[in-house]
Amino acid sequence: MTIKTQKYKVAEHLFRIGLDADSVLWGRMTESYGPFEAAEDETACIFDLTICDGVEIGDAGLVYSNKETVEPGFIVLNVYKDDRNHYFEFIQPGSKTANGRLSISLDLSTAKFCLSGTEFQQWQTFNTVVNFCFMLATNHYKTVLAHSSCVTYKGKAWMFLGKSGTGKSTHSRMWLSALEDTVLMNDDHPVIRVHDNGEAIAYGSPWSGKTKCYKNMQAPVGGIIRIVRAPYNKARRLSVIESYASLMTSFSGITWEKELADGRDRTIQSIIAAVPCWRMECLPDEDAARVCSEAVTNA
């Protein structure tokens, strides 16, 4: 097997993926990863992920498993660790055996991954793994993947948070139809990066859930808004602690490793210092978009 490599840049973080030149995954990647391709001569990748045959966990100890607590339809994750690597085992919903094993060096820069299962399962797991490596490797750089639907309006990014099914995407749709010049940036996992000058910027990513929206675009974050269903439309600015709680529940992260938890904490606090956070109690209607946009753009 000949390994072909390609560099990508998401949120101004460069990374490299190496994969069998004949793999069907290259074709699938065109649509979602294509917009993020970077030139081969760009340097300073924050991680290098190679898809290969066989990642052995050996006698590394089990650190974490969500097997008992995972909600139906979500990925089961088992985590192991030894003195060289973290190991992650992914089991897709409905699958009995692991669909992929990932090893990633303790410095989070070198990852190896082996895939199994049907082509569709492989594609899903592959996406999960790239997303996961990105989340880990960017931890030190005040960067987070937000579980969010994100639009741009009046030159800024407005990010909607909420549990699956509460209407993040619906609320984005309401902005798109009610407010002129609104653009959907990403519908599932945009990235927030806080730069050295303290500014928080939102970036599109190759991970957008069921909506095919893989835009390589960026905008300063104007507000982060938690969407809560209600029989009326009302926006309320959150206190510092409420903001932290709101962001914490919607940002990817591994917190049982203290260093990673510290990194995530620094990022969340930097975001709160830079961006107003809100709670929007709302109906799934266009009036909600008007009430919300008026409140958050006038802050």
């Binding site: 650190v63 974490y64 969500n66 510092v240 602690i241 932290y244 914490m248 917190t255 049982w256 203290k258 938890a261 904490d265 606090q269 709160i272 210092a273």
Partner: peptide
Amino acid sequence: IMGQATVIGEGVNQV
């Protein structure tokens, strides 16, 4: 958190 002492559940069993 912004000057406020706050306890957060971050361990394996507190995720």
